[in-house]
């Protein structure tokens, strides 16, 4: 499981209006340590990767809170103070995503470097020159990979961007999270290649059965085993709330 996203989910689960992680040892709004050793969500370093875990592909439909989750991951990485965080997106963020949890220190945001390459070629150029950055980035995030992969492009484009992302992250020894909207019509096209480069994936898909506030949309969050572990509520203003599924639906436990 991807450590960085777990930390994001734990942080959002601590939000006072959201349902905190329940059960023995779970984090609480007063708990300074969001993930304790006996928490239901254990965040352990995976061998061969740094504290941020393996590269992660976050898949989900449009407006399902992916940008907010990525931004939150950027804030958490910046708060660790290991170095600048690179946030790549084709379109500039119109406003700071209101995730429900802000940076503890406003200066933290200065550690996040927002880059907006407009074309796939520009993105590749940025990725191929990341080793020139000083100080070296500690975390790499790409929001909206699909915007660099129009349907007319082929698997070569998807593979090239994915491979260069992985190669840059491997050289920099930094974390990598990429978000994307998967194609609606199966696995053909550029995405066929993207998924083979990211064995660790997190999937957001609409939750139909849960009662949600009228202003919110609900999504299941599942990692590679496809079993949903959390529910994400995305409000109209973009604010995110996380509910662990065991607490949400006791009958399932």
């Amino acid at each position: 499981m991807a450590q960085v996203l777990c930390r994001v989910l734990c942080e959002l689960g601590k939000h006072p209006r959201g349902c905190c992680l329940q059960g023995p040892g779970a984090g609480s709004p007063q708990d300074p340590d969001p993930v304790r050793k006996d928490s239901p969500i254990s965040v352990q370093e995976e061998p061969g990767y740094g504290p941020q875990g393996p590269p992660l592909l976050l898949l989900g439909p449009s407006r399902s809170g992916k940008s907010g989750l990525l931004f939150m991951a950027a804030v958490l990485a910046a708060e660790e103070g290991a170095g600048p965080v690179i946030f790549l997106s084709r379109d500039p963020l119109q406003k700071v995503p209101g995730t429900g949890r802000t940076a503890r220190d406003p200066l933290t945001l200065k550690q996040i470097r927002f880059l907006y390459p407009a074309t796939p070629e520009e993105l590749l150029r940025q990725l191929s020159s990341l080793h020139l950055a000083s100080p070296s980035p500690s975390f790499l995030l790409l929001d909206g990979l699909e915007r660099y992969l129009p349907p007319c492009s082929g698997p070569a484009e998807g593979a090239h961007i994915s491979a260069l992302l992985l190669d840059a992250a491997s050289h920099l020894r930094c974390g990598l999270v990429v978000s994307a909207v998967p194609p609606a019509d199966g696995t053909e096209g550029p995405f066929m290649a993207v998924e083979r480069y990211f064995p660790t994936r997190c999937q957001l898909y609409p939750e139909m059965t849960t009662d949600v506030e009228e202003t919110a949309a609900a999504y299941n969050i599942a990692f590679s085993n496809y079993l949903p572990e959390w529910i994400l509520h995305v409000q109209e203003d973009g604010k995110l709330k996380i509910f662990p599924i065991k607490a949400q639906r006791p009958a399932d436990t």
Partner: peptide, 19 residues
């Protein structure tokens, strides 16, 4: 060919491996 993952810019990689 990148060091950290399987990628080659040749046509055979695109055709036989990816497609």
């Amino acid at each position: 060919c990148y060091k950290s993952c399987h990628y080659c810019s040749c046509p055979a990689f695109i055709f036989s491996v990816l497609r």
